[in-house]
Nucleic acid binder design. Structure first.
Length: 481
DNA sequence: AAAGACCGCGCG
DNA sequence: AAAGCGCGCGGTCTTT
């Protein structure tokens, strides 16, 4: 590892550059194009019957929920119309005032400030309202949430997807735009295959309908583990963060133990990672079970870790921790927590300050591969605009470096594809989802392909910390990971 | 009927 | 209030 010298990477790309270099970026981006072209050509198979069945089943649910909502509201109410929902819940029923009285929580306004918002955050708060006996005060917010979840899935996914299938290939051919984003990411459209649901049970059902087209094919996914954090550790050269990755530790666990000053020997090891861990305490009980540790300490630390990369604010962090199912923390707690994180990883703090300085001084920031982004916001006279620019400045070099790494992997995987092509073996790249690549390959080569891809992904560039990669194999997208 | 603003929400 | 970064898309509602 020679960090004082340039590495010459796949396709003649240089690393690290660390000054704006359109030529280096052009080399990088051009080398990823052949694989992107293959993805366009290959498409991904959709089990149309499965998708339509899901669509119809959810249609019944949506209808029932819609009628229930009309009945309870006492008049036709379109739950998809924010204006109508706000009129009924706030103007007619005054639920925002009740919420304020009962819990002090306030409903936010829409982006333009035109009215009180009726989004997930608002409805979830209203759903929690209880009467004197602990019963749900009003069923409407919960029902509207349920309707919206189903409506979203149907209108955005199960409805349109079958119509995107190309009748000649029976597959869905998304388009990747390699020059759309400010950070070097690809943008997928028509349809967007980078936002197919995964987090909910309904989401998994949709992914289940993306399958292999032949029984002797397999879907293979490979992803770069925590690549933005790894990139941050390298770019900032923060000693503690680097050591975590060099030692192969779990970053969020380390962060939690450090920040809450926990005694590591009192915490039960992750049963999934260390199934045979023997408890040394009398009675066999750990002072802090893994379950408690994970929820109370690791989850906030993990949430904050991601937030740091985005320039999170105390109120934003508070909301994120709650949304992730974590404990309630006051805004002051969150502010202290953020400061504590920067105190622990001081190198990251200094690195962030450097990006802010570059944005202010040059009106732009850049990543280690030479991609740059203009930040004209820093010259605004409006404080909120300047702060938004600084958050972009702190985030771009990290997101951009991560993209550079996967693009290098894509360039190398193109050669892998050519190798199997020459042998007449199926090896189709299908999708890139930011830190992940999905292929459809013949079952005869699955094992060697997985090994090759993992090796390629972790080996395309030599950072001062190891890059991790993982992979999985399945017959459908829903089963992957 | 078409275009566009706005809202809301799916993903990394 | 550009309120946490980066996207694309569908529905509603208004404007042309």
């Amino acid at each position: 590892m020679l960090l004082d010298k340039f590495q010459r990477l796949e396709g003649g790309v240089f690393f690290p550059i660390d000054h704006p270099s359109p030529r280096n970026v052009a080399r990088l981006d051009m080398r990823a194009l052949p694989l992107i072209d293959r993805m366009h050509h290959n498409g991904i198979y959709l089990d149309v019957a499965k998708c339509r069945k899901l669509h119809d089943d959810l249609g019944v649910q949506q209808l029932v929920l819609g009628e229930l909502i009309d009945t309870i509201a006492g008049r036709p109410l379109n739950p998809g119309s924010g204006d109508q929902v706000a009129r009924v819940l706030y103007d007619d029923l005054g639920l925002h005032k009740l919420l304020k009285e009962k819990s002090g929580q306030e409903i936010g306004r829409t982006g333009s400030g035109a009215r009180l918002s009726s989004d997930d955050e608002a409805l979830s708060m209203l759903k929690g309202l209880r009467d004197g006996e602990g019963n749900t005060l009003d069923p409407l917010p919960g029902l509207i949430l349920d309707w919206r979840e189903v409506a979203k899935i149907r209108s955005t996914y199960t409805g349109p997807l079958p119509s995107k299938v190309n009748p000649h290939t029976n597959r869905i051919h998304t388009v990747f735009n390699p020059v759309r984003t400010a950070t070097g990411r690809l943008a997928s459209s028509n349809p967007n295959c980078q936002n197919i649901p995964i987090k909910s049970a309904l989401g998994k059902a949709i992914r289940d309908s993306f399958t292999v087209q032949n029984q002797n094919h397999r879907l293979v996914s490979g992803d770069l583990s925590q690549i933005e954090m790894v990139g941050a550790a390298h770019a900032s050269n923060d000693p503690k963060m680097r050591k975590v990755f060099l030692d192969g530790l779990d970053l969020h666990t380390f962060t939690a133990i450090s920040m809450f000053r926990l005694n590591e020997s009192e915490i039960e090891p992750d049963p999934e990672k260390y199934p045979g861990a023997v408890c040394p305490f009398p009675g066999g009980g750990w002072p802090i079970s893994w379950k408690v540790f994970k929820h109370k300490y690791r989850l906030p630390a993990k949430t904050l870790g991601f937030g740091i990369l985005y320039g999170v604010t105390p109120s934003g962090l508070q909301l994120q921790i709650l949304n992730a199912g974590g404990p309630y923390w006051s805004e002051d707690d969150c502010a202290l927590f953020i400061r504590g994180w920067y105190a622990l990883y001081q190198g990251v703090y200094e690195w962030t300050c450097e990006q802010h300085g570059r944005a202010r001084r040059y009106g732009k920031v850049w990543d280690l591969l030479g991609r740059w982004r203009l930040i004209p916001e820093v010259y605004s006279s409006i404080e909120g605009v300047v702060n938004a620019g600084l958050r972009q400045a702190g985030n771009m070099p990290i997101q951009s470096l991560a993209q550079g790494i996967i693009k290098l992997a894509m360039a190398t995987m193109e050669r892998v594809c050519q190798y199997y092509e020459a042998k007449g073996v199926t090896c189709w790249p299908l999708l890139q989802i930011h830190d992940e690549l999905i292929f459809e390959v013949e079952d005869t080569i699955v094992e060697e392909f997985v090994a090759t891809m993992k090796k390629v992904m972790r080996g395309v560039v030599d950072l001062s910390v190891p890059i991790g990669s993982s992979a999985d194999v399945a017959m459908s997208w829903g089963e992957l990971k």
